[in-house]
């Protein structure tokens, strides 16, 4: 009985965790992802997607997870998309995929793709536990870490902190003028 409790307490599943405030929009993560998983440099097939807003100067990385309930798994009609019961990472069993593309539309982060050249679903597999994107990210905007210890920053908090930054500069500016 004690043994079982120990396992539950010690185990920390890691996820890709994003700190939106740090991202500079360099897209090195997209390059690293395809360099590793496609053997070439092709951001259109990256399993991570950087959304860049040039007009307001903001960059938002989208990665797979962390999803409490994974819509891609729920929607898959043939159980090709599944969730590892221990790591909680979702993965695609390609041999079962019928290319219905339901998951592409269901993904809350927009990171499941259909590769129209090879007709297959492209989905992050967390590089089998050694994510290339997190290693390549120069700013620490993508981390591979335990969800519970990571700062839980969502998109809204980036925008909020962005506005707060504007407020802060405003106060300092009025202080010196």
């Amino acid at each position: 009985m004690y043994e079982i409790q120990d396992i539950e307490v010690v185990f920390i599943p890691s996820h890709l965790v994003v700190d939106f405030t740090k991202c500079t929009g360099c897209r090195i993560c997209e390059l690293a992802c395809t360099a590793k998983n496609e053997g070439r440099f092709q951001p259109s097939l990256a399993r991570v997607k950087i959304v860049r807003y040039d007009d307001i100067g903001m960059d938002l990385p989208n990665v797979c997870g962390p999803c409490e309930t994974a819509p891609c798994v729920d929607i898959c009609p043939v159980y090709a998309m599944r969730r590892d019961p221990i790591t909680k990472v979702t993965f695609l069993d390609e041999s079962k995929c019928i290319l219905c593309k339901s998951c592409v539309g269901a993904c809350v982060n927009g990171v499941i793709l259909l590769d129209t050249a090879r007709m297959k679903i492209i989905k992050c597999d967390h590089c089998g536990g050694d994510p290339e994107c997190a290693k390549a990210c120069p700013t620490g905007a993508i981390n591979y870490t335990d969800v519970s210890v990571a700062p839980s920053l969502d998109r809204h908090s980036k925008i909020t902190s962005y506005l707060r930054e504007i407020e802060r500069t405003a106060q300092e500016a009025s202080g010196v003028e």
Binding site: I28, L31, G57, P138
Partner: peptide, 22 residues
């Protein structure tokens, strides 16, 4: 208010700035 970079750049020299007064 924020730091940005060009494609493939790990240095990130671009700065987005905001003016509040004046």
């Amino acid at each position: 208010v924020s730091d940005r970079a060009c494609f493939g750049c790990s240095l990130g020299c671009k700065k987005v700035n905001y003016v509040q007064t004046g």
